[in-house]
Design a protein around this nucleic acid. Structure first.
Lengths: 116, 116
DNA sequence: GGAGTTAGTTACGCTAACGAAATAAAAGAC
DNA sequence: GTCTTTTATTTCGTTAGCGTAACTAACTCC
């Protein structure tokens, strides 16, 4: 698979279409930080702990805890204690989270087709 | 210019990289709504009024007023009264807003090159 | 097994956003 | 010139996010 080639102008058009679409259609309104956390958990290699996520994003741990609270309520991901080191909290994917990202992926992909 | 062709998998990888990058590097933290408003003002044909933006995004007018307050403080755009109909507020681009979107465009474009 | 370290959460005070309703100002109708 | 409509903002009460600091629980190390 060759690398994607997107000009800055096309990039902005794509972001424009997707952003407007997200605002119009999506009930859930995630912050940029929440979106980043979600995508890390779903696309990067586990394990995912609060500390790892905080370091990965350059934010403090309470930021991660709060985002996990919110997205946990939304069922986009879940937490459980690491049985091997019970200080750790491991973050797990959920069916709803997968579906959410699947819809996001399809939306971006579809909007890209409209960008000239 | 042919249409962009991005698979859903590539789309997610792209969103992932850009989101993480925005969280790590960007001092400003715009909501999805704010981003959408900014991109509409910069990419769609004027005139841009509060009412138009609210209709375009399917949100109420106070949402737009508040977003304009915030982004006005950030200097990403500015407001002025329509001289022809002084009930209207027209939204204007700023140098800072252009630069912000230029950086965003470059970031997306650059990250796309990394997506296989 | 006690001292120190690490991981995550909670508490605190604050800022910003929300929806709904009320308000202010300007334009249009007649 | 008043009445109505339109446009945008402000207000109200609520919710969610922020950073800093304090805290709890679990592990490590001698």
């Amino acid at each position: 698979m060759p690398a994607l080639s997107i000009s800055p102008g096309q990039a902005l058009k794509l972001w424009h279409k997707v952003s407007v679409n997200l605002v119009k259609d999506e009930a859930r309104d995630l912050t940029t930080r929440q979106t980043a956390i979600l995508l890390i958990v779903y696309l990067e290699a586990p394990p995912h702990t609060v500390r790892h996520l905080a370091e990965r994003l350059g934010v403090t741990k309470p930021v991660i805890t709060r985002a996990l609270d919110t997205m946990g309520r939304m069922k986009l991901l879940s937490r459980y204690r690491d049985p091997d080191d019970r200080r750790n909290v491991l973050i797990r994917r959920t069916v709803e989270g997968s579906q959410y990202l699947e819809r996001l992926a399809d939306l971006i992909s579809a909007e890209a087709e409209e960008v000239t």
